[in-house]
Write a protein that binds this DNA or RNA. Sequence first.
DNA 1: TCCGACCCTCACATCGATGTGAAGGTCAAA
DNA 2: TTTGACCTTCACATCGATGTGAGGGTCGGA
Lengths: 130, 130
Amino acid sequence: MRIGELAERTGASRRLLRYYEEQKLISPGRSDNGYREYAEFHVGRVMQIKGLLDAGLPTRIIRQILPCLDQPRSIYFDDLTPEMVAILEREHDHLTQRIDCLTRNRDSIAEYLETVRRMKTQGAPIDRAA
Amino acid sequence: MRIGELAERTGASRRLLRYYEEQKLISPGRSDNGYREYAEFHVGRVMQIKGLLDAGLPTRIIRQILPCLDQPRSIYFDDLTPEMVAILEREHDHLTQRIDCLTRNRDSIAEYLETVRRMKTQGAPIDRAA
DNA sequence: TCCGACCCTCACATCGATGTGAAGGTCAAA
DNA sequence: TTTGACCTTCACATCGATGTGAGGGTCGGA
């Protein structure tokens, strides 16, 4: 498929798809006239990139971990340097930190909304500051 | 405490602490000479802001949800508009999406590292692409 | 044949989160 | 009293993720 269709199906602008390519996050083929040619799997790939980007990871890191998230693997274990393992371990821990932070705050919001809803049905304000 | 100590204890630069204030994420007092005065609780608050920022939330959103994450509450239920509830619900869902995305990718990394480790002890490469 | 809807590259603009530095005030200790 | 380590505001710089638009090629259908 060409860039327009991929843009429509992923919600990423054409500009952004070209940017992801420049950042080496995706590598579409080219047809004779120079148009980018995307395969079906690029849809999921772009969604994944968008998700990680939205979650605060820079393209630099995404580029590093992406090849390890594929099934089948595009990085073979033989090629894996100790440095790369270290990067992955660091990013794994970093992701866990982010997840914990987000989870804590999400749960606080949930709890707050829960209280608000109880409030509405019972109609009595509570002063939790006391 | 003054800005220097807070910066040291939180790892946020002085510049950034002033920026958070400008963005209305924190409101330190002022001493007679004009110096910002931070309280103990600001340490945790700044850590929380840093975490959310690092997780990809913009200050605009953090500002909206922060008052609801406090215990005691700084927003009382009476003040809570339906719009605010809608914002919180939207952000709650958005956070859940981010968490899911990060969790999926973290688990992929973990699984990959796990395989790498099994590899090392057993010494035989596996071709999962087959 | 030519128009409209695609595509290309290139480059400058914007926005949010930061860094950096200038010009100057406060204050404690030598 | 002066020096050094703080603090203030202001403003410009940078970096990454995006938008926008110019100038131009491709191609299918009226």
